[in-house]
Simulated scan of single mutants.
Amino acid sequence: MSNWKRICPLDDIPRLGARVVQRPSGGDIALFRNAEDEVFALHDKCAHKGGPLSQGIVHGRKVTCPLHGWNFNLQDGQALAPDVGSCASFEVKVEGGEVWLVA
């Protein structure tokens, strides 16, 4: 059973930007919004050196880590070649202009 939680209005996440959802345990989650208003959710920690992905550059369905330039697929958290690794991804949806997350 999924446990959806309302997080914020879509407009609270800047286009081509991110918003951080803090959790008491398990690490923060970064919500990313691309130019097409798609929203994605990843653990806010780069698999390479632990950099804050929420401060990275969003382009298409990818985010570039601000520390060392690694690129991650926003849909599944997988690093893009030549880099190897992944960060956790979370279910997210937008309904009625509101962002919902399973975490």
Rank of each mutant, 00 (worst) to 15 (best):
H68G: 05
L53M: 07
P82C: 12
R6L: 14
I13Y: 07
V84T: 15
W100K: 01
D83K: 09
W70V: 11
R61L: 04
G50V: 09
G50E: 10
K93F: 14
I57T: 11
L80Y: 15
G56T: 00
V99W: 03
D37P: 03
P9G: 01
R6Q: 15
C8W: 08
E95Q: 01
W100T: 10
L31C: 00
P24M: 08
G85N: 14
S25G: 11
D37C: 07
A41S: 05
K62N: 12
G60P: 09
V94C: 07
V94D: 04
S25W: 07
A81R: 11
P66S: 15
I29N: 03
M1F: 10
L53F: 13
R61Y: 09
G50N: 07
I57F: 12
G27S: 07
S2G: 05
G27K: 04
C46P: 07
T64D: 09
I13N: 00
I7N: 01
F90D: 06
L42P: 00
C46G: 08
P52Y: 08
G17C: 10
R19M: 09
G85M: 13
L74C: 01
G60E: 13
G51E: 12
G77H: 06
L10N: 06
G97D: 07
K62S: 06
D12S: 15
R19A: 12
E95T: 03
G69K: 04
D37F: 01
G27D: 02
G26Q: 09
W4G: 02
V94M: 04
D28N: 05
A79C: 14
V58R: 05
G17Q: 09
C8P: 10
P14R: 00
R6I: 11
V99I: 07
I7Y: 01
Q22F: 11
R6W: 15
D76L: 13
L53V: 02
N34V: 14
L101H: 02
P9E: 07
Q22S: 07
V84Q: 14
N71G: 15
Q78G: 14
E91R: 06
R33A: 12
Q55P: 15
K5I: 08
C87I: 12
R33C: 00
F32H: 02
S89E: 01
A41P: 03
Q75E: 13
H68L: 09
G27F: 04
H59Y: 02
V84I: 14
Q22I: 13
S25K: 08
A35Y: 08
E36S: 04
L10H: 05
D28L: 00
K93T: 10
G96T: 07
N71P: 10
G60D: 14
P24G: 08
N73G: 09
G27M: 00
L74Y: 02
P82L: 09
H43D: 06
S86Y: 11
G50P: 07
G51T: 11
D76N: 14
G51H: 14
S2Y: 02
P66E: 10
K62P: 11
I29C: 04
G17Y: 10
V21E: 10
F32W: 08
P14I: 15
T64G: 10
V21G: 01
A18F: 05
G27P: 03
G50I: 12
L74A: 02
N3Q: 13
L74P: 12
N3E: 02
D12K: 11
N3V: 06
G26V: 03
L101F: 04
